[in-house]
Nucleic acid binder design. Structure first.
Lengths: 256, 256
DNA sequence: AACTTAGTTTCGTATTGCGAAACAGAAACG
DNA sequence: CGTTTCTGTTTCGCAATACGAAACTAAGTT
């Protein structure tokens, strides 16, 4: 039914866009041509089209092509329409104020979570690495696991199979058995850990946000460097995390 | 040199994307076909390609096509690379806390400003209409005018000529003379007003953020409903606004 | 002045995307 | 329960469209 190849010019244009998105200060035509493997005149034509449509602009001072913020405008509309975002902002900020640590809101899309909101720590010193729009697999983050824990086992297995299991750090879970062990615990306690499974030196606690169907479509987390996240601190933070998750879930129509 | 028509399939695909971005809960194929004026089989082919590339997904439950967050991922990278954003976040939040009103950060792109960060009022009652990624003309916003005020007159004229002058409210400036009068005042005081020029019932004060070249590439503002923004309140808020703008400008390398 | 190298424009060609039409499935109707 | 009328998917022959080689321009380099 599917797997007919994508329209060629679209595929090519988007590969250029992806390349450009990785280079903040733009790229010259020839570089785009060589790394994409396309003929320079093809690249030129596609860029000209994208420029005319307003997605790309050529920096006249140095001849480099770069993305404009028009994509941001489009995707901003999409993100804005996610109702959990509106409901979560206030509780998240309160949570950050109570904990003084970075807090995140993610939603699930397929086998990944996407960061859609962040309130930064006031301990400005150490900055968490996270970017809005960034994706991570479900199985290696506190938020992801807390969402998995709201799903039936067979779906978890499906997601696991579709995921590219990769040990981001030495603590990353790479066996399905381990994952299920953890999920059992998460279901009991209502929150999930990430003990440096995604990034060394960072520990997170996460809790799912449920909508009226009871399924976890989103999750929130508190992240901090190892030094500020010992067991005592966790005991202190968990109730606050859960309260915030509860609050948002209730606002989304989840009961009990 | 330009105005050769854009690659057809690109132009069409992006028009579909724009349509989809305006409908949070997706659109059925036929609706897309009729409003875009494209043949349904063309729409189908383009959507299939966009799906395969991961930008669009078909909601199997109701058959509607919707945008994924992949665009958000791309544009997130672009936005993230704007250094003024990182530098502005803390001062903006402080400003919001001091004023208890909604504060915004915008950057200029061409003849428009783009909202790239917002810290919402805690007076949750009345919510400002503003969305990240949203664009407004320079001439009808406090932030826009404060940026114009940092530019040489001839450039202001150029921008004016390229702009589609439109009276958003009865207070919108629609004559170049009026604009220059205001710019003169803004240059004297260092901040700009928006007296319901963009939206009835909303008053803003804005100040430009300058980089090391002295040009205003960004600006910040405090917005509030008319009722909370009388002259006394403005006198109180302006110094705080200016302090924040100053702070960010300094961090960007602007001196004096 | 000769030689690179990046970027733009032209243009003939075949490939690619096009859309009419057939098909499949679901919902609405009588 | 068959008929009609939707929407969405697939096929396929045709020609318009996008392709890329090559010519050309403009800057830099040697």
């Amino acid at each position: 039914m599917e797997n007919q190849p994508a329209v060629q010019s679209l595929e090519r244009a988007f590969s250029l866009i992806e390349l450009l998105s990785r280079n903040a200060d733009g790229m010259p035509l020839m570089e785009l041509a060589s790394v994409s493997g396309l003929h320079k005149s093809t690249v030129h034509r596609l860029l000209a089209s994208l420029s005319q449509l307003g997605y790309v602009k050529k920096d006249e001072s140095n001849g480099r092509y770069r993305l404009t913020l028009k994509l941001f405008e489009l995707s901003g509309r999409v993100v804005d329409s996610i109702d959990v975002l509106g409901l979560a902002k206030a509780p998240l900020e309160q949570l950050r104020n109570a904990t003084q640590e970075a807090v995140h809101l993610v939603i699930r899309e397929g086998i990944e979570i996407v960061y859609i909101h962040k309130v930064e720590s006031r301990n400005g010193s150490i900055r968490m690495f996270s970017r809005l729009g960034m994706r991570r697999p479900l199985y290696c983050t506190a938020v992801g696991k807390s969402i998995l824990a709201t799903m039936p086992d067979d779906e978890v297995v499906q997601i696991w199979n579709r995921s590219d299991i990769h040990a981001y750090t030495e603590h990353t879970i790479t066996e399905l058995g381990r994952l299920f062990q953890e999920l059992a615990q998460i279901r009991r306690c209502g929150y999930a850990f990430d003990n440096e499974e995604n990034e060394l030196g960072v520990r997170c606690i996460g809790a799912a946000v449920r909508d009226y169907t009871g399924r976890g479509k989103a999750a929130i987390s508190v992240s901090a460097p190892l030094a500020r996240m010992n067991d005592d601190r966790v005991r202190l933070l968990v109730p606050q995390l859960l309260a915030a998750a509860q609050q948002i879930s209730t606002d989304l129509g989840f009961s009990r």
